[in-house]
Design a binder for these strands. Structure first.
Lengths: 213, 213
DNA sequence: CGGCCCATTGACAGGCATCAAGTCCGGTGG
DNA sequence: CCACCGGACTTGATGCCTGTCAATGGGCCG
């Protein structure tokens, strides 16, 4: 059915749909709701003053988007694929937070999860070399992509969004995918199919220890 | 006496000293304490598997370091300059969190602060061009550096650490500083003195709208 | 005074962004 | 069913940026 994430889930609620490309909320708006993703992939988008658009995070089923820890959203959220999601009010989210805080012995998993995604992007962007960034990215999201069969994952992210996330050009993303395919580290028979063939060597590339091509 | 920052402050406690370079805590250790900085500058350091060292954040007086939202520290913390700091136990921090949460109408400023620092680094690293990164960095920290007189700030960060934060080479940091000086956007008569001479143009460079040299 | 670390400057090579075409694919309408 | 179209992906050629290496300068401390 659906599978229980680390954050408390109001599973009785009916999930709402959103089409690919739709904006869930915009940075700067007062945050009255927190969104929990049930199906599909969403992205966090930051726009600086001059049209400079960056994708700062991707969200997957189970993730909570737009935690109301501040009074306003700190990024915009958009649907990458078609989505299903549920909303909870700011107030109810806080009640759940307090409860889970007491029960789980003083830790705040939902907040850690959001923070990790930001910390991770910083660390990936801190690496030098396109191959390193792309490989690290693949290893990161491979764990969250839905599995089709044996080793095939449903990989429905446009390269454009990957490029905006990794702060490299779409052409470089494409070229790097090709090299990784040629080296048999990954397989991508179709646009939306991915398989990690050699996790160890991919890790080596991600850490900068191994070269490409 | 008791001076209400965004996070409750136990100002009666005697501040502890730490020499420049000392490690406050190491990533992965269970976090039993949260550190509040009173004086000096500290850095967050992330090490990936293979000696790859990145500075993921800088901390300034008033900041809390190592929030125990997880059960283990997610980065290491080191003193950049000589420090004064106070410690609070995990448990007392949670009590204060709960209290401030109720009083301040459901928002968590200390957590927002930590998250913002990570979000910001990601956005700065997402920009292309060394000039852009350095300028954005200067604008960001200028607001937190202690003021000596009129427009002079005490700028006690080694360029090595700036380079590790911005994920560029120390040489590039140095060259960019020189160009910014030549363009009269900033002034640095000494290693540890900084003045922002033309904030608007510096913003233009940071956003990528203006070129350098 | 000497040693060390950091900052500085120059020369050079390589990587990646950019520009420009061309291809593939799904969707739409005839 | 097919022709068309637009967006995303692919591929190649080119130039700039920036990392790297190397050497020098400068401040601090012992």
């Amino acid at each position: 059915m659906y599978h229980p994430a680390h954050a408390p889930t109001a599973s009785a609620a009916i999930a709402l749909p959103a089409m690919a490309g739709k904006t869930l909320f915009v940075a700067g708006e007062p945050c009255e709701q927190v969104y929990q993703l049930r199906r599909g992939i969403a992205r966090a988008v930051a726009r600086s003053t001059e049209g400079d658009r960056q994708v700062t995070a991707f969200f997957f089923p189970g993730d909570e988007i737009g935690l109301p820890i501040s009074d306003r959203y700190r990024f915009s959220a958009e649907a990458v694929t078609d989505l299903l999601y549920v909303c909870r009010s700011r107030h109810r989210w806080y009640e759940a937070l307090m409860r889970s805080c007491r029960e789980q012995g003083e830790s705040l998993p939902s907040i850690v999860s959001e923070q990790d995604s930001m910390l991770w992007r910083g660390i990936i962007l801190g690496r030098h070399g396109v191959a390193s960034r792309v490989s690290a990215f693949l290893l990161m999201i491979a764990e969250r992509l839905p599995r089709i069969e044996e080793r095939w994952l449903l990989f429905s992210l446009p390269q454009i969004d990957i490029a905006a996330y990794l702060a490299i050009s779409p052409e470089s993303v494409c070229r790097t995918f090709r090299r990784l395919r040629e080296m048999k580290l990954i397989a991508m028979p179709r646009r939306d199919r991915l398989a990690i063939l050699d996790r160890e060597r991919l890790k080596a590339v991600a850490s900068g220890a191994a070269q490409i091509g």
